[in-house]
Design a protein around this nucleic acid. Structure first.
Lengths: 222, 222
DNA sequence: CCGGATCCTTATAGATACTG
DNA sequence: CAGTATCTATAAGGATCCGG
């Protein structure tokens, strides 16, 4: 169980923290929010985590029913980790945490930038407040080498966004995590990034602009 | 800064955890959600926390702008800690965490039960889904010795619930944390608890029943 | 009595090397 | 690739002590 035997309090918050509050555990879960990952993938996305700690966390998270271990069918045969339904229910927790964290004045601008973090930002801050544009339906393939994601917008709503291998979509966006972050935050534009070779769009560029425009940071009331 | 210099990632979630994710920090914040507290109060509500750790957390939380240190006017003159506006914005995070934690099969039934934890449960799980009863307006004084809370319901909405010293309300509810937990979860009834001397209601008992009935645990979709 | 600071012990994380 | 083993560095737990 949690840190030092846990908080030992009858409190939903304390209990949740006993389960998923240990160091690195939330970030392991964050990495799995976009789809299954192998041990080495997790290790690469979480620079600084000790292998023994990663092993321990995966074992703990599996034991409490948040993560599931699975073997990919041959010939791959690799061992992968994925969120269970119970783990996926943590989505509101991460969204709330991200909404609070992104408004921090101390939010770091340097450090490791994982592709997952940026793509999760896209998912978290996709504007759900405004009335959706029912004319907007498209599928996107987002390439942040070596990662590939697939996003679906149906009638103005982001209905799906996850890591994907089978790449079939209306639009293909090829860039990197840093450039995507700048595009989403407004510090970079589609034409400029394209001219600079930091962004390659295959398909309707207007659809891409539309996707980036749909991302809004939360204001105080949320 | 956070644990071991923090995660050093450009990610809102990782940053939020750097700020408030350390051991005990979330529980310190939880204690302050219902109003200001003194050092010793916090120590009593958080059994097991080392004084050095509590000092350190309060200093850290003050530095990042989540907690504010203040001196009560004479003759009290005691030093109290309270959430800043920025700290209060963590409300959605705690609500989401509580909603997830309360549905855990491993949720402990034994351990320390703080009055704050139960009262926060009342606030978190006060049913906001159903259409509010506009005829229901009342103020409650909730005594869980030695704590006193004040709750306000305005036209079916819980508009305020915090620790309070000046006790003025329509109804006074006197009980203890354990009994209140059972009353809210449905394991105990108002008449039975009253008969057993675990609950003393001064004022309209119907209003009390109404308050307890308004608390609903979240279902999977939340 | 309140608000801590200090000291010692122990648990856990970080780093690196190594193995099935 | 998927971890385990080992060593070291930190931070937490717990008791005690001290100044206002």
């Amino acid at each position: 169980m949690g840190v030092r035997g846990g908080y030992r309090q009858i409190c939903p918050v304390a209990h949740a923290l006993d389960l998923i509050g240990e160091r690195w555990a939330p970030l392991v879960i964050r990495e799995l929010r976009l789809g299954p990952r192998r041990y080495v993938d997790l290790q690469r996305s979480l620079p600084g985590i000790a292998p023994s700690v990663l092993s321990q966390r995966l074992r703990d998270l599996e034991e409490i029913g948040v993560v599931q271990r699975r073997l990919l069918p041959p010939p791959a045969g690799s061992r992968i980790y994925q969120l269970t339904a119970r783990g996926a229910e943590l989505e509101p927790v991460f969204n709330a945490l991200a909404a609070w964290g992104v408004r921090s004045p101390a939010m770091p601008t340097t450090g490791d930038l994982s592709s997952d973090a940026v793509v999760l930002g896209l998912r978290t801050f996709f504007d759900t407040e405004a009335e959706p544009d029912t004319n907007w339906t498209a599928s996107y393939e987002l390439r942040l080498p070596p990662e590939v994601y697939r996003a679906s917008v149906e009638r103005g709503r982001l209905t799906d966004l996850r890591r994907a291998e089978p790449p079939v979509a209306d639009v293909v966006i090829e860039t990197d995590a840093q450039a995507l972050l700048e595009l989403l935050s407004g510090a970079e534009t589609v034409p400029a990034a394209t001219a600079a070779g930091r962004l390659v769009v295959t398909g309707d560029a207007g659809l891409v602009q539309r996707l980036f425009d749909a991302v809004r940071k939360p204001s105080a009331t949320r």
